[in-house]
């Protein structure tokens, strides 16, 4: 399948987990990748994997919470690759904390990485997409952005904010043929849950999923790559939630 041949994708947080899986799948479909991560080593490793597939990769290591750095990331991505067709706002992190434990620093960091980072990176890439009258933006939200959770309300709210951007940008950018969608994963066997939950807790959580399992990172990437492809040129403002069968109502 080469339906991303000739495209350039910028993927934040693509140094490991789902972000790396998106980079590798999109490269295997023909895209060149701007790899961004706060950890340079991790980003370099993803870049090596992309190059092993015969595609170009360029690493820009930075913290997406840093607005100046994010603007430089957009400029360097376009400068090196000539354009950015696809932006995946994937950088993020989890924190299992309840309301009384979430201090101002936690709150600010959660919002800065997920919300502010996605906002200003998208803002920086939009002018060139508008000029070319083509672009694909995929925001990585979470099932918790729609259902909530008994922990991590700052995470739930940040992921819900990404759905707000998705709906608003889909309408605002439609006149320029820029498509904006969200992918809201359920349980994924990636770094986050493995670090945050012990194996028994993870197993118990899998039992509660209708399909009785968490998915591999690439199973999220398939949804991202579909939305990034010309096959989804009539799909905008929508959310795909690969979550193993949980119903989402009222988002």
């Amino acid at each position: 399948m080469g339906n991303l041949i000739g495209k350039v994708a910028l993927i934040t947080g693509s140094g490991d987990g789902m972000g790396r899986a998106h980079a590798v799948l999109m490269a295997s479909r023909g895209a060149d990748i701007v790899v961004n991560d706060i950890r340079r080593d991790a980003a370099e490793e993803t870049a090596r994997m992309v190059k092993a597939l015969g595609r170009k990769a360029h690493v820009v290591a930075c913290d997406v919470a840093d607005t100046a750095a994010v603007r430089a990331l957009a400029a360097e991505g376009i400068g090196t690759m000539g354009k950015v067709d696809i932006l995946v706002n994937n950088a993020g992190f989890g924190q299992r904390a309840q309301l009384p434990e979430i201090v101002e620093k936690d709150f600010d960091r959660m919002m800065a990485v997920h919300v502010k980072g996605s906002f200003f990176l998208t803002q920086a890439l939009i002018p060139a997409m508008k000029e070319r009258r083509y672009g694909k933006i995929i925001n990585i939200s979470s099932i918790w952005g729609m259902t909530g959770a008994p922990v991590a309300s700052h995470y739930c709210a940040a992921k819900a904010a990404l759905l707000g951007f998705t709906k608003a940008w889909a309408k605002e950018l439609a006149p320029w043929n820029i498509h904006v969608n969200a992918v809201a994963p359920g349980g994924v066997r990636s770094g986050g849950p493995i670090k945050l939950d012990n194996p028994e807790i993870l197993r118990a959580k899998e039992e509660k999923v209708p399909l009785k399992r968490y998915c591999e990172p690439v199973e999220i990437s398939y949804a991202v790559a579909y939305l990034a492809s010309p096959e989804a040129d009539f799909v905008t403002g929508q959310v795909i939630s690969p979550n193993g069968g949980d119903t989402i109502v009222g988002f």
Binding site: C215, E219, F234, Q238, I240, P242, N243, G245, T247, I248
Partner: peptide, 14 residues
Amino acid sequence: ADFISGQQISPNGG
């Protein structure tokens, strides 16, 4: 789409 169930995709132009 082996992890996608109970969902809806609406190709509706925005």
